[in-house]
Measured scan of single mutants.
Amino acid sequence: KRPMNAFMVWAKDERRKILQAFPDMHNSNISKILGSRWKSMSNQEKQPYYEEQARLSKIHLEKYPNYK
């Protein structure tokens, strides 16, 4: 399994927050909201998630050096 990208790292927690506020919301609607919110974020706001992506990718590479 591939490591999560920056959007997926961010969306994991955000999806949970949306589901708590709107438990009956369909997954497709949540995904649209998440995509819209991510697009509206500045690069500075996204930076911690890109850093986490890099950390996860490094761990993945160490654990699975032959993964293609």
Rank of each mutant, 00 (worst) to 15 (best):
K46F: 01
Y64R: 13
Q20S: 10
M41R: 03
N43A: 13
Y49S: 03
Y67G: 14
E62R: 05
M41I: 03
Q20T: 11
K58Q: 08
E52K: 05
M25Y: 01
I30V: 12
F7I: 01
K58P: 08
Q47E: 10
G35F: 00
A21I: 13
V9M: 07
H60F: 11
K46V: 01
L56I: 10
K39V: 04
A6T: 02
S57T: 13
E14P: 00
R15W: 15
L19F: 05
L56E: 13
M4K: 09
Y49G: 02
K68R: 07
R2Y: 14
S28F: 10
N5E: 12
N27G: 08
K68F: 05
M41G: 02
K68I: 11
R2V: 13
P23H: 04
P65D: 15
M4W: 06
K46P: 01
V9W: 08
K32F: 05
I33Q: 03
Y50H: 04
M25S: 03
K58W: 03
I18T: 02
I30L: 12
S31F: 09
S36F: 09
S28W: 10
L19Q: 12
Q47P: 00
I59A: 14
Q20A: 10
P48T: 07
F7Q: 00
N29Q: 15
F22K: 14
M8Q: 15
R15G: 10
E51Q: 09
H60N: 14
H26N: 15
V9Q: 04
W10Q: 02
K1Y: 12
D13G: 05
L19N: 07
P48H: 04
N29E: 15
Q44R: 09
L56K: 08
L19R: 13
E52M: 08
M25N: 05
N29S: 13
W10H: 03
I18L: 12
K1S: 13
A21Y: 07
N43G: 08
H60I: 05
L19C: 08
Y64W: 10
L56P: 10
K1R: 09
I30P: 02
N66G: 12
E45K: 02
E62W: 01
L34G: 01
L34M: 02
K46C: 02
K17L: 03
K32E: 13
S28K: 14
D24C: 04
Q53A: 15
V9S: 07
R16I: 14
M41A: 03
W38F: 04
Y49D: 02
N43R: 13
R55D: 08
K46M: 00
N5R: 02
R16L: 14
I18G: 00
I33E: 07
M4H: 10
K39C: 03
I59H: 11
A11F: 05
N29W: 11
M4Q: 06
S36A: 14
K46Y: 00
R37G: 12
P65E: 12
M41K: 06
N27F: 13
W10I: 00
H60Q: 09
D24P: 02
Y64H: 14
F22D: 13
W10E: 00
Y50W: 10
A11G: 04
K58M: 10
S40Y: 01
P65Y: 09
R16F: 08
K39H: 03
L61P: 12
K39F: 03
K12V: 11
R15Q: 04
N29D: 15
A21K: 15
Q44I: 10
S31I: 12
D24Y: 08
K58F: 05
F22P: 05
D13R: 05
P3A: 06
K32P: 01
R15A: 08
I30A: 00
S42F: 04
K32L: 06
M25C: 04
A11S: 08
P23F: 01
F7T: 02
Q20F: 01
Y64D: 15
L19S: 10
A21T: 06
E52S: 04
I18S: 01
I59S: 13
E51M: 08
P48E: 03
Q20H: 08
A11I: 05
Y67F: 12
P48I: 09
N66I: 07
Q47D: 06
I33H: 05
Q20L: 08
G35M: 12
Q20W: 01
K39A: 10
K68D: 09
P3V: 04
S57M: 12
S40G: 09
F7A: 02
Y50T: 03
W10N: 03
M8H: 14
Q44L: 11
S31R: 09
M41V: 02
E45P: 00
S31D: 15
N29R: 12
M41L: 11
Y67K: 11
N29A: 13
Y67W: 11
K1P: 15
S42Y: 03
K32D: 09
N43M: 10
M41H: 01
I59T: 13
M8T: 15
P23C: 01
K46A: 00
Q44P: 04
S40F: 11
S31Q: 15
K68H: 12
S28Y: 05
S31V: 11
E45D: 11
H26K: 14
R55P: 02
K12H: 10
S31E: 15
I33Y: 07
H26R: 12
I33V: 06
N66M: 09
Q47R: 07
Y49C: 03
I30N: 01
Y49A: 02
R16V: 14
Q53P: 03
Y67L: 11
Y67H: 14
S28Q: 14
I30F: 03
A54G: 07
K58V: 07
F7P: 02
E62D: 11
E52R: 02
K39W: 11
K17C: 02
Q20P: 04
W10V: 00
Q47T: 05
L56T: 10
S31A: 13
S42T: 11
N66S: 10
S57D: 14
